[in-house]
Design a protein around this nucleic acid. Sequence first.
DNA 1: GATGAATGAGCGTTCATTCAT
DNA 2: AATGAATGAACGCTCATTCAT
Lengths: 225, 225, 225, 225
Amino acid sequence: MQKVVEHVGVYVNPGIYIKDPESSELGRRIISGSIELMEEIGFDAFTFRKLAASAGTTEASVYRYFENKHKLLLYLVAWYWAWLEYRLVFVTANVEPAKERLKRSVELLVQETEQDGQFAHINEIKLHHIVVAESVKVYLTPDVDHENRIGAFQRYKRLVERISDIVREVNPRYKYPHMLISTIVEGSHHQRFFARHLPGLTDKIKGEDSVTLFSVESVLKCVCQ
Amino acid sequence: MQKVVEHVGVYVNPGIYIKDPESSELGRRIISGSIELMEEIGFDAFTFRKLAASAGTTEASVYRYFENKHKLLLYLVAWYWAWLEYRLVFVTANVEPAKERLKRSVELLVQETEQDGQFAHINEIKLHHIVVAESVKVYLTPDVDHENRIGAFQRYKRLVERISDIVREVNPRYKYPHMLISTIVEGSHHQRFFARHLPGLTDKIKGEDSVTLFSVESVLKCVCQ
Amino acid sequence: MQKVVEHVGVYVNPGIYIKDPESSELGRRIISGSIELMEEIGFDAFTFRKLAASAGTTEASVYRYFENKHKLLLYLVAWYWAWLEYRLVFVTANVEPAKERLKRSVELLVQETEQDGQFAHINEIKLHHIVVAESVKVYLTPDVDHENRIGAFQRYKRLVERISDIVREVNPRYKYPHMLISTIVEGSHHQRFFARHLPGLTDKIKGEDSVTLFSVESVLKCVCQ
Amino acid sequence: MQKVVEHVGVYVNPGIYIKDPESSELGRRIISGSIELMEEIGFDAFTFRKLAASAGTTEASVYRYFENKHKLLLYLVAWYWAWLEYRLVFVTANVEPAKERLKRSVELLVQETEQDGQFAHINEIKLHHIVVAESVKVYLTPDVDHENRIGAFQRYKRLVERISDIVREVNPRYKYPHMLISTIVEGSHHQRFFARHLPGLTDKIKGEDSVTLFSVESVLKCVCQ
DNA sequence: GATGAATGAGCGTTCATTCAT
DNA sequence: AATGAATGAACGCTCATTCAT
């Protein structure tokens, strides 16, 4: 059992970074500084110069850890997927039937993020904001194909795969499990963003969370015909 | 009848540009040049300097039309929504019942784009690629709220509103029409992109288009319970 | 008598402008707009683009009147000297003895400026601010010598000359009349500026104006030994 | 005694620069290059690009030392005041009576500048030309008040203060010591400039220096009634 | 004579990155 | 391993100016 958990431990593909930021005090400061700063000013205005200033280090030192700011975003997002998968494994462990596991998985994807005390240098709530607002920029790039080849999106794909497996267990004849799950993920990001900034593109219902289209019932309806 | 069509003519909110690019030969060259260049190198690498070179003009002249490259992307995307709405009106005019109108609307949102001979300086296929790959960058910005206030997303919101009206006609009790339509729009972009670059996040079925999750039948199933 | 007055009429050397701004409604609007704008943002930030916008015309039209913004400043300052000389002639006409004429002259140079109703398109108070803050920029230039040759500083030099004549009448043996008068002029500008912005460089005495060093008595003391 | 000298060492307020140009070889090259170039082409035509070229470095490197060209001029002028004060302290040390100290101070303010071998990277003669022709631009700016607050004119004010103290020692009842000294300073600049470029505004007497109005005798006459 | 459109040139700034310590 | 200093390259933008109408 422990092995499985370890297997999904919250770590990211080594190809993304030059030196593992978890391996040093400075590295962790770079990560927590990045989350603070990027959440505040957005990815486009974010630069290594500003990061260095806010993390109390130098540009040159940041370059020891990440090749460029894109790779750093890649890292943050990958960490987020790894963390989600990690929680997914716990939340679905030993749960039967598959329908219940699917229910819990979808809830996890769609729910508001809460602070997780385990990772002192990471503010998960701000990280979630970054994921909502910036994660698409991670693949909407001329270099997607290359970055895909070096495993940059592995954690995202594995998470989708894992839940797709549950979908197929619930209904082996359902034809679009990956499409469904990735749509839930991306869709819930968009709808959260719309609810906050472009309410005309969503439906805000008093007392309901902003991503109800992707509620468990709706999803089960899709999967089970 | 003519009036309605005029009302949805393919024009964009004047707040987006400084000088209407449709109003001059150079303006149209800037637009067609932008589409060519941005499709090729992506929005992030796109600069006014490169645009000027490729459109055979100068940066200063481009600045007569658009304040910055973000506003120019805003224009392209708004033009696309205006064009979609324009076609929507034609395709649904005089069609009954509402279910059939909804069917045609969803098909329009989801289908592959074809060249439209009416607008000589616009390559709609390349423009669609830009919309798929870059349109989210138009609102995933620290300035969304401000740009929303100046009407930058008006055309998108109006298109969603128009189809939501049809949804409500089909089923007045359906609670999430806007969310459904904006999810179809954004989701079909993502799935198209995934199909091309990250197939692990979608389900490619031989002979089917890549956005079948949003097929007419699925959508009708959602709307009609 | 009338002739003398005409001779010192408030006009500036034609070499400074391309087309006389007094000769047209637009020309006068350019002048009054310049005074407003330059007083507000300062000469360095002042551009023909901003002037055109604020005067409701175009850059190209401004170029019909002035070669560049430096020539325009030259014009404003020359107009100011012409206006001062004009008033000097009136204030000293038929006054005896020379000592009294000198007294009145110095008072004119040093006193606070008041609005003069005669020139509708010119706000003399704001123009005086411009002269205080910007007039030295008119000659502290690599092109002084050239501009001097085309008569750009004629009005200033003539004013100084005219008062120097009075000084020499008072005391024919006084060796530095021009130096004295130009020092009074420039010095009163500086002291006015210091009183407002750098009080540590001047002596602000309650109830006295800020340029008392150049008071009539001090000056007479200099001239009469 | 040594302490006093140290106290007036030739250094400028750190708020003016980003990195102290005296602290590196490149910094000193930037200063000497600035003096050469600015003396030649004037402050207005002076740009960081041209400076970088002439100093054999890059614009980016210059920006490590100074925020902009205005701050660089501020530095040069402040350095000049610091240097003057430094020499003033030497020239007046242990001199009695106060009248003699005032005499020597005024001579220092007014005399032609000579090369000082102590500061290898600074050509004091050219720097003096810059001070004569450009120093007023340092405060004739919309930002005077702000720059005054950050201490940009501290060195100038302190020099004036120091000599004003001597004036008051000579005659405690004299009311305008600061005004007198700042007028001598600015006036001698102007008269030097006029003598070279606008002789009609000064009095050039064979064998006399161009700033005789501010000669020791004249000044003493002012101070001692 | 006045205006609208277009342009050539260059400035100020910042970024990403490298080198030496 | 981390840092400080320096740099090459480019971007965004504006200015002064000209041309055609």
